[in-house]
Amino acid sequence: MSNNSDSAVGHAHHFTDMDQQREASTLGMWTFLVTEIMFFGGLFVAYALYRSMYPEAFAEASLRLNLLLGAINTGVLICSSLTMVLAVRDAQSGKVKGLVRYLIATIVLGSAFLVIKAFEYSHKIHEHLIPGSSFQFAGPFGQQAEMFFSLYFMMTGLHAIHMIIGIGVLSVLLYQAKRGRFTAEYYSPIDVAGLYWHFVDVVWIYLFPLLYLVSRH
């Protein structure tokens, strides 16, 4: 521990000052997000290849997705990004009450996204669109459509897992914020969780047109 009498709460002794500590944690999170880009990137490459191989099947299969629910979910996620960034802003200004309120709002909106997603998934189960032995798709593109739905479930599933982890992280931060862990000087966990949350939003920004808007014209 630092013996400096003026060292701020949350200041780790191996950093010169709080600014340097904040920069280090931000950069660390961006490094993690770069690995996340590559993690999701593999699925996006697979999507690009299979879509170029089976354009008609992807067009037909995509029409089976619920555009309204997908669009609503995009809106819900953008709202949650707004509340998240306002949570970070209140943390920067040391407004604990606002921070707590915006964290709750973000958790609620994130959960709403997952509930809507669950409705979509259950619909797909009823329509026998889960890839596997029970998969049914009328028309000449059955097997190729199955590939679309494999990618749909892997991409949205991986995204949903990230949402669940994000909600878990925010819940812990909410508990800590209520107990007064964060100040205007020390709020890096909120900042870094915000970066993660916005990244997951960005992934959805690409998933939505790729999966739901293939061939609406």
Partner: peptide
């Protein structure tokens, strides 16, 4: 293109 514009402003301002 639209998705990339959206992603860019999320990165620039929200992140």
């Amino acid at each position: 293109g639209i998705a990339t514009v959206k992603a860019t402003i999320v990165a620039l301002y929200f992140m």
